[in-house]
Design a protein around this nucleic acid. Structure first.
Lengths: 290, 290
DNA sequence: GAGGTACATCAGTGTTGCTTATCGACAGTG
DNA sequence: CACTGTCGATAAGCAACACTGATGTACCTC
């Protein structure tokens, strides 16, 4: 199970071609063929069907393992390398759109910051591999409850903010006048599924049961403005942290009172914080404590 | 970053000796020395001090990565190998002491089961590497909230039981007559820290703040009877699922009403369930649903 | 300072892992 | 139905690698 073999395996599976994978990896087609043969012999089972090239059942399973495995490997290498190298001057911050609340924005230093918006699931990986110095992830959680993050590497997380979550309803919605909403009131509603821009709905799923959250429209972009516009136009409900629900024309934000969920933002970083990253982390965490 | 090099690195670090590690791994001392040198050259930083042999700062960091990494690697190999081999007859179940509630015990088949009691953190690893067919892990969580498990491999989890948690108090304790307890009532109390037998206290930590849960006595065994005896004798409080708190002489169990936590048990398994493992998993999950 | 222990280094060698070259299987084409 | 191009498997050759065994060197003990 040499990582090199694993790497060629995943590229072969991705490209569905031995020769293409060889080109991409800088090997000859022969070498790739031998890699796969070696892996299959090592594991005692065929991993790919040939012609067309497609993973077998065992191959599918291996693919599920291989991604995180190679990611961790990269993360480990990057992490140790980072310790030896000098601290850079710039500061790169990996964030989700909804993780950048007003308080966080205020804490950013005046210059020298690069913001990198990523999907929620990619932020730990970015921090682990050193693509970002710090990460800000957000999500729904029970009050003072840590978020569930994929652990690609030994990372440190600490909460930096918690605020109420609101349901964004069109102004004309029958429930828009309510002071607070229970999720149970909304079993018949349709939701906006916007994994890139909004908050993930899976937390609502677990709270209300699998069938309870039905999605009306899926938005694959990362723009919050679009999301709120869609919500105002009645294409579906969405949940957002309170500070993101002010000034949305045509829509009303009603706090979600049950289940007791908060919008939680966590700062995540690798081992040793140095330079401007340390200062920002200090700034962000000192108020919240947690 | 060859896994072989990583493996010799961790054994050298563990044994604090090149020669000892060589003996354990079946290499010559020379080979081990070359492995470490290769790794250090690859990463561009010394990983170990010699005489005495001890990890450097970068080495410590690498150690944190190496364990999970090698574990995942083993898990991947075992998982794929399992798909190719025939299903065995026996059924091995990895459990924590408090995960085996009365309903779970009732569902076990009459014969052919091996129970393996492990530390909470080792159960995912055992299931991932195939040391056990199924795992039962428990812990404290918000109602209908999944547990936080270390992800060593792509595993499937599903809830099988939730029940109230109780605080076990000596019968003479001033709060023993209360119908229910809030964690806030217990800020002055001392706790039993029993990671092997009882439930982990870290969940209480997050609920009440870092300083709020102070431990009086640490018990490193895995025997629940000892734990309840210690609690009854006033050596500290402990939290247990309700069904484990009946018939404890000299102690009274009072439900914990705030924060809203339940004792949750989850079944965890690898990819494809076959043979008796599938039957048991079916039996355990069909009632609870989740 | 002699002896012992423990890690580093060097030379030698068998194995591995790659490349080039060739083959067989298959699909599209005239 | 042969012709041709593509794709993966296989064979042979060669260079690099990863071991072993022997030797070197630092440090600790007595």
């Amino acid at each position: 199970m040499d990582p090199h073999l694993l790497r060629t395996y995943v590229t072969v599976a991705r490209l569905a071609s031995f020769s293409e994978a060889a080109r991409e990896l800088g090997y000859t087609q022969s070498a790739v063929s031998q890699h796969i043969a070696g892996l299959e012999q090592d594991l005692g089972a065929p991993l790919l069907t040939r012609r067309p090239v497609r993973p077998t059942a065992a191959g599918e399973r291996l693919l599920e393992h291989a991604g995180p495995l190679l990611l961790r490997l990269d993360a480990a290498r990057a992490d140790v390398l980072r310790m030896a190298s000098a601290p850079e001057h710039g500061l790169t911050l990996a964030v989700t759109p909804t993780a950048l609340g007003p308080r966080t924005v205020a804490a950013l230093p005046a210059a020298g910051v690069t913001l990198r918006a990523l999907a929620r699931a990619d932020i730990p990986a970015a921090v682990a591999t050193g693509a970002a110095d710090l990460g800000l992830v957000d999500g729904l959680a029970a009050p003072s409850d840590p978020l569930r993050l994929p652990d690609v590497a030994p990372l440190t997380t600490c909460g930096v903010a918690e605020e109420p979550v609101c349901v964004l309803l069109p102004a004309a919605h029958p429930l828009a006048r309510r002071p607070g909403l229970r999720l149970a009131d909304l079993v018949d509603a349709r939701w906006l599924d916007a994994p890139g821009a909004g908050l993930p709905l899976d937390r609502l799923h677990t709270a209300v049961g699998a069938g309870g959250v039905r999605t009306a429209l899926r938005y694959e972009g990362t723009d919050l403005r679009t999301l709120t516009t869609l919500a105002a136009a009645g294409h579906g409900l969405t949940v957002l942290p309170h500070s993101f629900t002010t000034d949305v024309p045509g829509a009303v934000a009603v706090p979600l009172v049950a289940p007791r969920l908060v919008h939680r933002t966590e700062l995540i970083h690798g081992g040793a914080l140095r330079g401007p990253a340390a200062a920002l982390a200090q700034e962000l965490t000192e108020r919240h404590g947690d």
